[in-house]
């Protein structure tokens, strides 16, 4: 029966900043193991929507319902704050565009990875270290750098560290806000490769916000195109990108430079 229910059900979510709409009437279901991409230009409401979905910004209208580990569908804004915070740091992950927003810069890489473990009650230093080393390896950072501070890492490494820090509690749902933004292309390619690998192996569901069509082409199963707060087109990624119907999507696809 759990297979009949989506992991995340978003129904008619709107958020208004005063009179202006951040996002309007967005509905979709996210299924386990599915990656949904949200694309659109700056100001189209991608980030507002992502914040509404990830319990960081209460939407003005609409509901966000999440199927928790006990298979109960729960409205995330009806949860108590304690439950919601617990959910966001165990079952969910959030990868920020700028790794500095998602990392603790004053503590070592190992502590960054171990923080969520300690937050859920792990109290064995040796085990925390082993897990941190293991995760550094999985995101292709040399385990010998476990005691280095994040500012000593390159941008790409910081981003990978942020991913490790989010995945250490084996979340089921990860929100990503431009995870490859600000990285040069070769580093981007490696990061995408790594992400694709991790996501498939861990059967993660991902809501991926980006303006980069190449990123969604590689990662996302489904795609939603946003313009001025509304979803103007959605469908399978390849379908939308190869045969765009909405004029705005056509513009978006044709604006990409062919290398």
């Amino acid at each position: 029966m759990s297979a009949d229910l989506p992991l995340l059900r978003v129904s008619q979510v709107s958020h208004f900043y005063g009179d202006r709409a951040g996002c309007r009437d967005v509905s979709f279901d996210l299924w386990p193991g599915e990656i949904i991409g949200i694309v659109g230009e700056s100001g189209s409401g991608k980030t507002t929507l992502l914040n509404c979905l990830s319990a960081r910004l209460q939407p003005s209208h609409g509901r966000v319902i999440y199927r928790d580990r006990s298979e109960v569908m729960r409205d995330i804004y009806a949860l108590g704050e304690a439950e919601r915070r617990f959910l966001t740091r165990t079952d969910w992950g959030f990868v920020h565009q700028n790794p500095r927003d998602g990392l603790r810069l004053g503590v070592t890489a190992g502590a960054n990875i171990g923080e969520r473990l300690m937050a859920v009650g792990t109290r064995h230093y040796g085990n925390i270290r082993d897990t941190a080393r293991d995760w550094l390896g999985r995101v292709e950072i040399d385990a010998a750098r476990i005691d280095d501070l994040p500012p000593a890492f390159s941008g790409g490494m910081q981003q990978r560290l942020q991913i490790a820090r989010n995945l250490v509690t084996a979340p089921r749902l990860v929100f990503m806000d431009e995870p490859t933004g600000g990285l040069d292309v070769s580093v981007q390619a490696r990061l995408l490769d790594l992400l694709r690998d991790l996501v498939t192996r861990l059967k993660l569901s991902v809501v991926l916000v980006t303006h980069d069509l190449a990123v969604v082409r590689l990662l996302a199963h489904r795609l939603m195109v946003m313009q001025r707060g509304r979803v103007v087109e959605e469908g399978l990624t390849d379908q939308v990108l190869d045969d765009p119907h909405h004029p705005y999507t056509q513009l978006l696809v044709s604006s990409v430079l062919q290398a």
């Binding site: 704050e81 304690a82 070592t108 190992g110 300690m118 476990i146 005691d147």
Partner: peptide, 22 residues
């Protein structure tokens, strides 16, 4: 205050972890 209210004290162990790591 929220952290106290919800007994979210994992962060203090992050500090102790840092002590041991360094």
């Amino acid at each position: 205050r929220t952290m106290h209210a919800l007994a979210e004290y994992g962060i203090m162990h992050v500090r102790l972890y840092e002590d041991i790591a360094r």
